[in-house]
Amino acid sequence: MLDIHAFRWGDFSAGLQDILFNVILLFAFPVYAILVLIFAPALLFDTVRYYVTNTIVFFLSIFKENRPEQEPLTAYSPMVTALVPVFNEGKRIKHTLDAVLESDYPNLEIIVIDDNSQDETSRICKTYQDRGLITYLRKEQWSGKPSSLNYGRWYARGEIIVHLDGDIVLTRDAITEVIKPFRDPKVGVVSGNLRVYNDRESLVSRLQ
């Protein structure tokens, strides 16, 4: 006898969907649990960080409102020594010295260390020294910029030392601005912003 079984495709499809749904549920729970374990600490940390950060900002804002104003720069004006090592800077040293002498910083000494220049540098610097505007030191043998700076430090009286090249032209408030951060005792070194004005004179200045 031929046994024939008939079925409806819709019933089979519904049963297959139930099986797939159960399989998905079977694997979904472990995956969900793993995701929770992975992201829950990050979410908790981010929430705590958010509230802690806002709390700190709140108290800092209160502290800032109540703290005394920072002392004006006129109350903090330690002696500053500007060390200017030069070598054959006859074409530019006058501009450099004039700019430093026009500085609005009230407590400043200028020391020029001549590394045995063979041009007009010595003659120009001596005219400033004769007027009592700078201290001029001339070395009889070339030894390089680091050696010149170390030599100049022996004569420096300033609490803070500013290094300048012989072809730099400062703005009037440059030294005043560079000294301001030193009001914080944690600050040990400050650097200024260099802008090249003789960028057509040599390949090196163009590259700067």
Rank of each mutant, 00 (worst) to 15 (best):
D104W: 10
K64P: 00
A28D: 06
R67G: 03
E69N: 04
A99H: 08
V52I: 08
I56T: 10
H95N: 15
S61N: 11
A28C: 03
P85E: 06
P146V: 09
E102Y: 13
E65T: 06
G132N: 03
E109G: 01
T53R: 06
R49Y: 08
L16P: 00
I34N: 02
Y32R: 05
V31N: 13
I62F: 06
R131M: 09
R67V: 12
A82E: 07
R92N: 13
P72T: 01
L43Q: 13
K64R: 02
Y76R: 03
Y32H: 03
F45W: 05
E71S: 13
S61L: 08
L97K: 11
K145T: 15
A14K: 09
L44S: 14
P30G: 01
L37G: 02
E109Y: 02
A33P: 00
E65C: 03
I34A: 08
K94R: 15
T121F: 11
D119S: 02
R131W: 02
K94E: 14
G15Y: 05
V57F: 00
N66A: 11
R8G: 10
T74Q: 13
D119I: 01
V48T: 12
I134L: 10
G144E: 01
T135L: 13
Y76Q: 01
T47I: 12
I38C: 13
F58S: 10
G15L: 11
T121R: 06
G10D: 05
N150R: 10
P68R: 10
P78W: 12
I24M: 13
S61K: 11
G132M: 04
H95C: 09
D104T: 10
V31E: 14
L108V: 00
N107T: 00
A28K: 07
N66S: 09
N107H: 14
E65W: 06
V57W: 00
V23N: 07
F58V: 00
